[in-house]
Design a protein around this nucleic acid. Structure first.
Length: 252
DNA sequence: AAAGGGTCCAACCGCGGTCGC
DNA sequence: GGCGACCGCGGTTGGACCCTT
């Protein structure tokens, strides 16, 4: 049995919001707040909308200090780094970008930023990766502000490389091919990605613990900006180093 | 000018988490 | 502890707009 609907779907308006509806919602919330109950809010505000729809409209469009328009290079860097570090946790990423909403960032990533990074990959000279074998599935990004990221076509995802590599194969050595029981990780900004076996399934696993034991959420915006803007800090290794480490990373 | 395809983004949907009873 | 109601999140969709032919 499914959950009961949060509203009478037959009597709620759907689709784009009109300026009148925006005005009603904005006026009501500015006067009375949300009252901690979005389900009851539309009725009180005189709106024929679902509470969830009101909440979304307020959070993504009407609330004060929402920033619209182009994303800056700084914001790009923050999004890329956090995405590589924590994945599609848009609300957490949005928390580091004042004025941006998770929906905004999600849309921006899906429609622009991801393509931007993939285009960079396409431009990169794959011959630079001659250290990699032909069956490698990792493509390194060119030297750029995103140089610490690599696109993984088979996962349709970006991985970030930096910090100290950790690789513990079953035989205790760095292997050129990963075995089922191998375990391999790259510690990056505040978190790390591990390739290993989880319940018999080979997969990349996001480790909770990160560099120096710190969690990404322990950083405020200024910290993030400072860390990302510095190419020589301890979180990111240099290009040559990255290439060396990439040698050991093969898709199983 | 019109048609078709591509892009973008606001909004919706469904699910997991949380909270109060 | 179980249950229901609500919140918040991430994935997906629909349609408006733009671009190309």
């Amino acid at each position: 049995m499914g959950r009961a609907p949060c509203c009478d779907k037959a009597n709620v308006k759907k689709g784009p919001w009109s300026p009148e509806e925006d005005s009603k919602l904005k006026d009501y919330i500015e006067k009375y707040g949300t009252g901690g109950n979005w389900i009851a809010l539309p009725q009180k505000a005189g709106l024929k909308r679902c509470g969830k729809s009101c909440r979304l409209r307020w959070l993504n469009y009407l609330r004060p200090n929402i920033k619209h328009g182009e994303f800056t290079d700084d914001e790009d860097r923050i999004i890329c780094t956090l995405f590589a570090s924590i994945g599609s946790r848009w609300s957490i990423i949005a928390a580091q970008l004042p004025g941006r909403t998770d929906n905004d960032i999600k849309n921006y990533w899906n429609t622009k930023l991801k393509k931007k990074l993939m285009a960079m990959n396409a431009q990169s000279d794959l011959l630079n990766n001659t250290n990699l074998t032909n069956n490698s599935s990792l493509i390194q990004t060119p030297e750029s502000l995103f140089s610490h990221m690599q696109y993984h076509p088979m996962r349709d995802n970006f991985l970030m490389f930096g910090g100290e590599p950790s690789c513990s194969s079953s035989d205790g050595s760095y292997g050129k091919e990963m075995k089922q029981e191998d375990h391999m990780g790259f510690q990056g900004f505040g978190a790390s990605l591990d390739y290993g076996t989880n319940n018999g399934v080979n997969q990349w696993i996001q480790k909770q613990s990160g560099y120096s034991g710190e969690c990404p959420l322990d950083y405020n915006l200024e910290d993030v900006k400072r860390l990302i803007s510095s190419n020589n800090n301890s979180f990111f290794i240099d290009e040559n180093d990255t290439q060396d480490k990439a040698m050991y990373c093969y898709y199983y």
